[in-house]
């Protein structure tokens, strides 16, 4: 008797109906990230347009041009792929693609609800920040491989900006770790059942918000892709869908950072009502943070690079250290927090 090999169809069905695969492929994984990034592109354009007394995209739609970004997606996919003559083709193509993968990788760590969580790593917060740390390398690689002046300048600017704002980002999130006594994001949410961390960590939350906007390279910190100065910076040479990947990575990071802010400061999936509403609450808080960050774009102008670095390294770093001291005395003074 020969052992029959397992039925491939049965195996495939078993695999694609497993809970982990559904989470990885549908929500909060790949498919939902793609759709959310597309909707965020639309939301960004629409809100900015409203702030500037314009209408924004409106034709491709059942509702207010919401399908505009999907139309753009199809358009960009059918564009000709022009790669500059002297570019390093391998890294030129791979850098934005891996930037997108890295951005999407952040979502795996966010507990949208106790069940819809892909990876319950014990060191969730440092892993998230470590992924963020990798992205300036990819941006610099993208700028360098294009072998053109503006992308190179944009890549260098991105390196300075993201490294400069990284230490305040890390230090501001230390306050949360001190209060929760854990790196695990689910445990951080559980620790907030007595009160959201935004109250004892107000200073830290503000620093975290400012530095995370800088890490996402959004206005007012969009120096690496400043259109009037260095014509989209490191994205200047990207054609068609590679440009889409470079832009999409920014929106995926916006989603991930807003979700992280909602998780560590706004109590994540905690909220009134029965437990199955947890998913709704975390998405609701994430949406509020996303809209807040988009509104910043309408409210502020771009800062200069030397101002950016000076305030990042002196003001934000100093405030982050003060925040750690305040948190320490809070814990020593009121051990119940």
């Amino acid at each position: 008797m020969v052992d029959l090999p397992p039925d491939p169809i049965q195996m495939t069905i078993a695999m694609i109906t497993s809970p982990l695969f559904l989470k990885v492929a549908i929500f909060p994984g790949l498919t939902s990230i793609g759709i959310i990034a597309a909707i965020l592109t639309w939301l960004d354009r629409k809100i900015t347009a409203r702030v500037q007394l314009r209408i924004g995209p409106q034709y491709v739609s059942p509702f207010g041009g919401i399908l505009q970004s999907f139309a753009d997606l199809i358009k960009l996919a059918f564009k000709e792929l022009i790669i500059p003559e002297k570019a390093d083709r391998f890294f030129f193509i791979l850098a934005p693609v891996f930037g997108l993968v890295l951005g999407a990788g952040l979502i795996a760590l966010i507990p949208f609800s106790p069940e819809t969580l892909i990876s319950n790593v014990e060191v969730g917060l440092p892993v998230f920040l470590a992924f963020v740390t990798l992205s300036p390398t990819l941006v610099l690689l993208a700028g360098w491989s294009a072998n053109s002046k503006y992308p190179f300048i944009g890549g260098l600017r991105s390196l300075f900006q993201q490294t400069g704002y990284e230490i305040p980002l890390w230090l501001s999130s230390i306050g949360v770790v001190m209060l929760a006594g854990s790196f695990n994001l689910t445990k951080i949410v559980q620790a907030q059942s007595t009160g959201w961390f935004i109250l004892p960590q107000l200073l830290g939350a503000i620093i975290f918000l400012v530095t995370s906007v800088a890490e996402q390279e959004r206005i007012p910190f969009d120096l690496p892709e400043a259109e009037p100065e260095i014509i989209m910076g490191w994205q200047a040479e990207y054609p068609g869908f590679l440009f889409l990947a470079a832009q999409g990575a920014g929106f995926v990071k916006l989603y991930a950072f807003s979700a992280l802010f909602a998780t560590i400061y706004l109590g994540g999936y905690l909220g009134p009502g029965p437990q199955f509403l947890g998913l709704f609450w975390s998405l609701f808080k994430t949406t509020i943070m996303i809209v807040l960050v988009i509104l910043l774009r309408g409210a502020f102008g771009r800062v200069r690079l030397d101002q950016l670095l000076k305030y990042g390294w002196t003001l934000l770093l100093g405030l982050a250290i003060i925040n750690i001291a305040i948190t320490y005395f809070l814990i020593e003074g009121f051990p119940a927090i």
């Binding site: 990885v24 891996f98 990788g105 795996a108 892909i118 990876s119 319950n120 014990e122």
Partner: peptide, 15 residues
């Protein structure tokens, strides 16, 4: 080590 296989699986899947 909890969660690391899922993380690697997810990263591999999206890559």
């Amino acid at each position: 080590a909890e969660g690391i296989p899922e993380l690697v699986y997810y990263l591999g899947f999206i890559t």
